[in-house]
Design a binder for these strands. Sequence first.
DNA 1: AAAACTTGTCTAGCGTTGCTAGAATCCGGT
DNA 2: ACCGGATTCTAGCAACGCTAGACAAGTTTT
Lengths: 191, 191
Amino acid sequence: MSAVSERRERERAQRHQMIITAARELAEAEGWEAVTTRRLADRVEYSQPVLYSHFNGKDAIVSAVALEGFAELADHLRRAREAADDLGQALRAVCGAYLDFASERPALYQAMFVLPTELRFASDETPAPMRACFEEFVSCFRPENKRRGLFAEVFWSALHGITVLSESGRIPAAYQDERVDFLVSQFADAR
Amino acid sequence: MSAVSERRERERAQRHQMIITAARELAEAEGWEAVTTRRLADRVEYSQPVLYSHFNGKDAIVSAVALEGFAELADHLRRAREAADDLGQALRAVCGAYLDFASERPALYQAMFVLPTELRFASDETPAPMRACFEEFVSCFRPENKRRGLFAEVFWSALHGITVLSESGRIPAAYQDERVDFLVSQFADAR
DNA sequence: AAAACTTGTCTAGCGTTGCTAGAATCCGGT
DNA sequence: ACCGGATTCTAGCAACGCTAGACAAGTTTT
């Protein structure tokens, strides 16, 4: 492989990342409904069809943004859990970190957990960052607990429910802390 | 008001309902992405613009369908709760009824709890059927429990989380019953 | 060095969407 | 019989995701 084609491949990878970043920034600034292929093409200063030489379609771009989000969320959760002294505090810490993430980056959260996605969850092909996120929840339960996987799923589901219902205005923004306190307290004994 | 204009008003109300019903049927048969204003107009055998003399836009139609759903869900939940012997079984019964509803009418559920809606939740103008749904959850907790409103919100959120994550394939379809059993057991002592 | 081919990018356009302006039509009241 | 107001339709706008085919740039072959 020549030096020229190496450069080209490098440039191509850069552009690939530019598209993802542009999509993410646009979504975080104006919401996903404002992210159109035309506006994306404008931002990366290429014409519309080049997007389709990098991604199969708009959903694939959203999924790529989501994957970035999973890596960041995994990191965020891990830090919170490791800063906790014991398992009891870990659940609460991970919980707080998760809700922080969701409320600070609502568009990113949507790409990960709400919008139609091409990413496969809970399967053999599930990318590492997604596994890592889930494992953070699992780690909040005792290793000897045979059902910790299931418990983690349910706890995560509850957190997700609170997140999306409050984001869409279906439960009041007030009393969010009380809700979370209650949720954690109800799961504390199941660790 | 003449008899003629009375008839016209009656016909108008019928057409109003036809639009809602058509939207609902189309959504339940092919999903909301297949519900377009043109296909709706076709179904009710009028031209597109008449939809806009009944509703402010597509979102308003979705919201009207959702409101029908709330009435049905309230009824469904109430029956389940009243068939239960005590409060302990009530929580589990309402829970089962809720998940039944969600899995049997996924499109209707989406209109109610996922899609952007014009309906106001948890406010003074919240329509009665929506209040009724929420009250069914509240009624699963003891009347003397001062925080039953908050508890109901959290329990409902958890159920919703399980519903949407499993509907979108983000948690496996299997083990759903185990998840629900676990959830109910964790909230049983908080009644 | 010229010709042929491959690769990358762009212009232009298809079919669809939600929504609306303005023409046409219908119908009751005088 | 005609007028006026309400009702409904035709036609069209701007925007969407996506793609075919023209064009240009660069690489390889003769």
